[in-house]
Nucleic acid binder design. Structure first.
Length: 415
RNA sequence: GUGAGCGUAGCUCAGUUGGUUAGAGCAUCAGGUUGUGGCCCUGAGGGUCAUGGGUUCAACUCCCAUCGCUCACCCCA
C-alpha cells in the first residue's frame, strides 16, 4: 500500500469543517485590521532562505527540502513565509502605492524534521507582515491580532511572552558580555551548554539542567544590554499592551531561531498541547528587506501553526464543528425512476439546494437510512400512487410528517 | 540526528504459561413481508495477526533485523 510520506497528513472530509472555521476566523480578523492576503509559490530559489533566514540556523542548516530543477537551479520548498513575502514585496515594489504594506497569508510550509505531536513535515501556517513602518504600534497590533484569532478559536490557556533582541550590533556586544560572564564558570556547565557557549551562546538559557540554571541566575540579560532605540520601543510595546489589557510575561530567554529578528519579539504558547507548545511567534525584522536586496524597509510580523492551534482547540474542547446537513434526499419507489430523480436533483441544485440520491438500486429502507445518515432536512419520495396522480411526497425528517406536493409547486414549497 | 514505546478487521481493542477453523464492540451491507429513517433484533462480508528471517513437532504469542507509527530530546509554528 502506498501511504502518505512521513510527516505529511491527509486532511479528510470530516476534518474540513474545523479547518474552514479556523480559516474564516483568520481572514475575518485580518480584514478587520485591513490586512490584504498574499499568496506566493510553494518553492523559491534556495538563496532566498539561506540569505534571509540565516545559513547557521537549524531551519536552513538541516531542515530544508532542497532540490535541483532541470536547469540545475537550487530550489527549496518554503520552510517559512516571511522571506517569500519580503521577496515579493521587493520584486513588485509594493511600497510604491502606499507607504505601508499590510499583508497576511495562509499556506503550507515544509521542514524536514522528525515528526512528533504538533510537528509535521508539511504543516500549515497563517501569519501577517507589515512592511514600511518602525512604529511599535504595529508590534502591538501583531500581538493583538494573534490573540484575537486564538481567542476567537476558543482558546483560553494561553501565555504571551515578549522579549527584545535589540539590533544585531547590540546583540553582538551582549554576546561578548555574556561570554565573559561564563568564561570562568564554563567547566561547571553541562556538556550541552558548554557546546552552546561556543556555538550559539544565546541558546544557553534554554538549558534544562538545574545546575546550569543556577549559574545563569546571575547572568546578564540581553534586554538590559540592547541599544537605546530598541529599549525605547520595547517600553512602548509594553505600554501599548497594557493599554489593550493584554497580559504578558517578559522572557529574557526568548530567542527566536531565525537570524532576521531585531528588537521586539514575542511568542504565544498553549498549556494544553504537548511539548511543541508554541502556537505563534513573531517579531520585528528591520534589516531583512535590505539584506534581500531591497530598499531599507522596516518590517514586523508573526506566524502561527494551524495544526497546533487545532490540537489546542481539541484539548480545550472548542471549535466544535456542527453536523453538516443536506437540504434534500431523493428517494425512488420504483427502480425505473432513475431519469426522473436525476432530473429533479438537477433542478433542485440549480435552485441552490444541496440534493443527493441513491445511484444504485437500493431498497426504500436503505435509501431512508442513507437520508438519515446524511442528515437530510427533507426527503422527497418519488413514485407510487401519488406520482401517478401528479405529485411527490415531501417528508420532514425531523418531525416525520409528510405531505403530497404537486410537481409544479416543488421549489416554492421547499424554500 | 539521539532515545523510548507501540504495530491483530475501516476504527477502538481482546487473544490465557507458544497448541489445531484469530474474536468483540463500533462502522459497512442485507433482512425483520407488499412503498419509509433514527431504537431494537437477525444475519453477512471484511484479517498474508506490519514485513522478512530464526527457535520449535507447533508462533499472533519467544528471538533478531527491517519498515512504519507515536511520544520525548533538539529546534520551532
Amino acid at each position: 500500500m502506498i501511504k502518505a510520506v512521513t510527516g505529511t497528513k491527509d486532511i479528510l472530509p470530516f476534518e474540513i469543517p474545523k479547518w474552514r472555521h479556523l480559516e474564516k476566523i483568520i481572514s475575518s480578523v485580518f480584514s478587520r485590521f485591513n490586512y490584504k492576503e498574499i499568496r506566493t509559490p510553494v518553492f523559491e530559489e534556495t538563496v532566498l532562505f539561506s540569505r534571509g533566514i540565516g545559513e547557521e540556523t537549524d531551519i536552513v542548516g538541516k531542515e530544508m527540502y532542497t532540490f535541483l530543477d532541470k536547469g540545475k537551479t537550487s530550489l527549496t520548498l518554503k520552510p517559512e513565509m516571511t522571506a517569500s513575502v519580503v521577496r515579493s514585496f521587493i520584486e513588485h515594489s509594493l511600497d510604491s502605492k502606499q507607504p505601508l504594506a499590510k499583508l497576511f497569508y495562509i499556506s503550507p510550509m515544509y521542514r524536514q524534521e522528525k515528526p512528533q505531536a504538533g510537528r509535521l513535515r508539511e504543516f500549515h501556517q497563517f501569519g501577517a507582515e507589515a512592511l514600511g513602518s518602525n512604529s511599535p504600534l504595529l508590534d502591538a497590533e501583531m500581538i493583538q491580532m494573534s490573540l484575537d484569532i486564538l481567542k476567537e478559536a476558543g482558546l483560553k490557556d494561553l501565555t504571551l511572552k515578549i522579549n527584545s533582541l535589540g539590533t544585531p550590533d547590540s546583540r553582538e556586544k551582549y554576546k561578548k558580555i555574556l561570554y565573559k560572564f561564563l568564561e570562568d564558570k564554563k567547566n561547571k556547565l553541562s556538556e550541552e551548554s558548554r557546546k552552546r557557549v561556543e556555538k550559539n551562546i544565546l541558546r544557553i538559557f534554554d538549558s534544562k539542567e538545574e545546575s546550569d540554571q543556577e549559574i545563569l541566575k546571575n547572568a546578564p540579560f540581553l534586554v538590559e544590554h540592547i541599544d537605546e532605540e530598541s529599549k525605547r520601543d520595547f517600553v512602548e510595546v509594553k505600554k501599548l499592551l497594557d493599554l489593550l489589557g493584554i497580559k504578558f510575561e517578559i522572557d529574557p530567554k526568548l530567542v527566536r531561531g531565525l537570524d532576521y529578528y531585531t528588537k521586539t519579539t514575542f511568542e504565544i504558547t498553549s498549556g494544553k498541547v504537548g511539548s511543541q507548545n508554541a502556537l505563534c511567534g513573531g517579531g520585528r525584522y528591520d534589516l531583512l528587506a535590505e539584506q534581500l536586496g531591497g530598499k531599507p524597509t522596516p518590517g514586523v510580523g508573526f506566524a502561527a501553526g494551524m495544526e497546533r492551534i487545532l490540537l489546542a482547540c481539541e484539548a480545550e474542547n472548542s471549535l466544535l464543528p456542527q453536523d453538516e446537513k443536506i437540504d434534500i434526499y431523493l428517494i425512488k419507489l420504483d427502480k425505473e425512476l432513475d431519469y426522473k430523480i436525476f432530473e429533479i436533483a438537477s433542478f433542485l441544485r440549480k435552485k441552490n439546494f444541496t440534493a443527493d440520491f441513491d445511484y444504485g438500486g437500493r431498497s426504500v429502507k436503505a435509501q431512508m437510512r442513507e437520508a438519515n445518515r446524511l442528515n437530510a432536512k427533507h426527503v422527497l419520495i418519488v413514485g407510487g400512487d401519488e406520482y401517478k396522480s401528479g405529485s411527490y411526497i415531501l417528508k420532514d425528517m425531523k418531525s416525520g410528517e409528510q405531505q403530497p406536493v404537486p410537481f409544479d409547486k416543488l421549489d416554492s414549497i421547499i424554500s
